[in-house]
Design a protein around this nucleic acid. Structure first.
Length: 211
DNA sequence: ATATCGATTATCT
DNA sequence: GATAATCGATATG
């Protein structure tokens, strides 16, 4: 059923990152592998604006690393950080205008066993696969969700989220979000007081402060 | 529950 | 040569 969901159209991403970050909550990130489908519901995002946002990678202009942010909307921007982790973003706004949204946390929906294996944390028993504290370690945090989905810069940077043939998609399964909270972004020093972090109120898989 | 710290490397100054 | 949109382990209240 997930496999039959159509990805969100490119136009969905062709607007202000704040709008996209908010609208993405409740949607699914879908990864198709030769073993099966991995999917997680987006429960936490952060908006990164263009050249006017000191915390954004695009702040100092286009480089070999961040060029995707300056390109057309709906494209995966993956970067490597702290020598250890990948982080997954989607580009926003039309070609020539920088902007993006960072995926900060997902709620595991499908392919949980495979995601646990990718994270290197094997369940002790099958009961663990439904245990909230076990599930939270899978995709609660930007580095974690990238690892769970097997996302790397080498494989996934520049991938088209909106293409029906892409193995990395964002789809709408009709889930409706009740309430959204907005707070400052996490893990940055510049522009650290701008309220650009969005999450689903009360969701257990949100990373960081839940107020 | 909150705080601090080390890991480890692509990228930019 | 310094930095970084993080994580996991360890220490302390």
């Amino acid at each position: 059923m997930l496999a039959s969901c159509k990805p969100l159209p490119r136009a969905f991403f062709n607007r202000d990152p704040r709008k996209v970050a908010r609208a993405l909550l409740g949607k699914l990130v879908v990864r198709k592998t030769w073993r099966g489908v991995l999917a997680g519901r987006i429960v936490e995002t952060e908006a990164y604006l263009g050249v006017n946002d000191a915390a954004a990678h695009s702040a100092a202009g286009k480089t070999a690393r961040n060029f995707v942010l300056f390109g057309p909307p709906g494209i995966a921007y993956v970067y490597f950080i702290y020598g250890n982790h990948y982080c997954l973003n989607v580009s926003c706004l039309p070609d020539g205008t920088a902007g993006g949204v960072l995926f900060r946390a997902l709620e595991p929906v499908e392919g949980i066993k495979q995601m646990a294996a990718a994270r290197g944390i094997d369940p002790a028993t099958d009961a663990d696969l439904a245990n909230p504290s076990f599930l939270k370690k899978l995709t609660s945090g930007p580095g974690r969700l990238a690892e769970a989905l097997g996302v790397t810069r080498e494989r996934d940077n520049e991938k088209r989220f909106f293409s029906p043939r892409s193995d990395l998609q964002i789809v709408d399964d009709g889930y409706s979000v009740r309430r959204i909270a907005v707070t400052p972004r996490i893990g940055i020093v510049k522009s650290a007081d701008e309220p650009l972090r969005y999450f689903i109120t009360g969701n257990a898989f949100v990373s960081g402060p839940k107020v």
